[in-house]
């Protein structure tokens, strides 16, 4: 045993050149990462601990937790977190269930599935802002198609955009629509990786399609489901863009603050800008996402086969 290990140790010595070479190849990429990813992150963390930091003059009044104390006590931030969590916990399960169903339908070899695939994946290739504007028309109280359709079922028109309480649901509907295609694509590729032999085997044993779906398809798809859920959770936590085409901002009477919008608000909207508070909020959001991801990873490991 020891002998074997020794042979490895005594293996051909690497020359200095050989040792350095890989790092030279890494250099361009590492440079990009350091300048464009690592540096800004470190900077944000530092900024969050600087009191009264001014971005332009780079001056600040001292180190401390002032920003965090302010942010954690700010009712706008509370609202932002509440909205964001609510949004994530509504969007993720609904979009997941819808996507699993739709991906399954698309995975069947039915006529016209190509048309449906295109229809479902269209949101992915269109500019969300442009389409978001279209949604604004669709949500319109008087002339929007959504209210017209609801009218067919005898439902009173809902003022999606102009009544504070409804803004959130409009945002959720739009958010689900926007996240579906990406989710479906990943799930579909997961489904296509399942050996059809498992279905045949179950069918020969007399399993119904519901049984096959819940006992075979879902468990075998679970790793993909977890992966997609992880990615989607992170991206929905960062909900921000969608506010602009739909509401030109955080909704009626600022009722739709989200975590990222809060960061933007401290950075760009308030006068004078509060860079430190924006950075503190960003760090808090990062920690929340980090913890959520860890929880998901942990659950995934627990259920892995």
């Amino acid at each position: 045993m020891t002998k074997v290990a020794k042979v490895h140790e005594d293996g051909p010595k690497r020359t200095l050149k050989q040792m350095i070479e890989p790092y030279i190849y890494l250099l361009p990429f590492a440079f990009g990462i350091i300048v464009f990813t690592l540096y800004p992150i470190v900077n944000v963390v530092l900024m969050s601990f600087k009191n009264n930091y001014d971005f332009m003059s780079r001056s600040f009044s001292g180190w401390g937790l002032e920003n965090y104390i302010y942010v954690l006590n700010d009712s706008y931030f509370h609202q932002a977190l509440a909205n964001t969590f609510k949004y994530v916990f509504i969007i993720i399960p609904i979009s997941m269930c819808l996507s699993i169903l739709l991906a399954n339908l698309l995975n069947q070899k039915i006529k016209g599935s190509a048309i449906f695939q295109t229809a479902f994946f269209l949101p992915m290739v269109t500019s969300t802002t442009a389409v978001g504007l279209t949604w604004r028309f669709m949500f319109n109280n008087n002339s929007g198609i959504i209210n017209a359709m609801l009218g067919l079922f005898g439902i009173e028109p809902i003022n999606w955009l102009q009544i504070a309480g409804n803004n959130f649901y409009a945002l959720c509907i739009y958010g689900i629509w926007a996240i579906l295609p990406f989710t479906i694509i990943l799930l579909l590729s997961g489904l296509q990786n399942i050996d059809p032999l498992y279905y045949t085997a179950a069918k020969v044993d007399g399993a119904s399609s519901t049984k096959i779906f819940f006992k075979i398809t879902i468990p075998l798809l679970a790793p993909t489901i977890f992966l997609v859920m992880c990615i989607n959770t992170i991206s929905t936590f960062k909900v921000f863009n969608d506010l602009f085409p739909l509401f030109s901002g955080p909704g009626v009477a600022n009722n739709l603050f989200t975590a990222v919008y809060y960061i933007y608000y401290q950075f760009r909207v308030t006068r004078p800008p509060r860079y430190g508070r924006a950075a503190a909020a960003a760090v808090i959001l990062f920690l929340i996402i980090f913890v959520m991801t860890m929880i998901q990873k942990w659950v995934e490991k627990k259920t892995k086969y």
Binding site: L197, Y198, A201, V204, I216, P219, Y305
Partner: peptide, 15 residues
């Protein structure tokens, strides 16, 4: 009422 064994067994990996 047939029992079938597949070439690559097709055992359900999650069970």
């Amino acid at each position: 009422g047939v029992g079938l064994v597949f070439q690559n067994y097709a055992l359900y990996p999650h069970m």
